[in-house]
């Protein structure tokens, strides 16, 4: 059973074993508007929790995507380069950004649960 956690910067992370898949939340995708470009990290790059890992751009906005957890990048979603609209269409599924091999599984527990994140968004 995979577990999904959330950050205040509106990333989600789904952990399956020692691997985590990372993307941006539906709320973030809506705030950005139509996504037109995504810059993804290359495989093998080491990312630290809270560090810049990717960039997502719409026509009028650009944002850094931070790695919610530390680890080494094992894959990135090449389909987004050809069709960045996937981020708007299915942000928490097909619109995933990249995967990392966790270096500290304990970091995940510090992130928000779905309920906590929904509450957080309501307060914005």
């Amino acid at each position: 059973m995979s577990e999904v956690r959330y950050t205040k910067e509106h990333e989600w992370v789904r952990v399956e074993g020692s691997e985590a898949t990372i993307g941006i939340t539906k709320y973030a995708a809506e705030q950005l508007g139509d996504v037109v470009f995504v810059e993804l990290p290359e495989n093998g790059r080491k990312v630290g929790a809270g560090g810049e890992a990717a960039v997502v751009e719409s026509v009028k906005a650009a944002s850094e995507v931070y790695a919610p957890v530390s680890g080494e990048v094992t894959a990135s979603n090449a389909a987004l380069s050809d069709d960045p609209a996937k981020v708007n269409a299915d942000p928490e599924g097909d619109g995933w950004f990249f995967k990392v091999k966790l270096s500290d599984a304990g970091e995940v527990a510090k992130l928000m649960t779905r309920e906590q994140y929904d509450e957080f968004v309501k307060g914005l």
């Binding site: 470009f37 751009e57 719409s58 026509v59 009028k60 906005a61 650009a62």
Partner: peptide
């Protein structure tokens, strides 16, 4: 491609 530019990207 205005996201490269100062009025959106500011210090980046």
């Amino acid at each position: 491609l205005s996201t490269r530019e100062q009025h959106i990207r500011r210090d980046k």
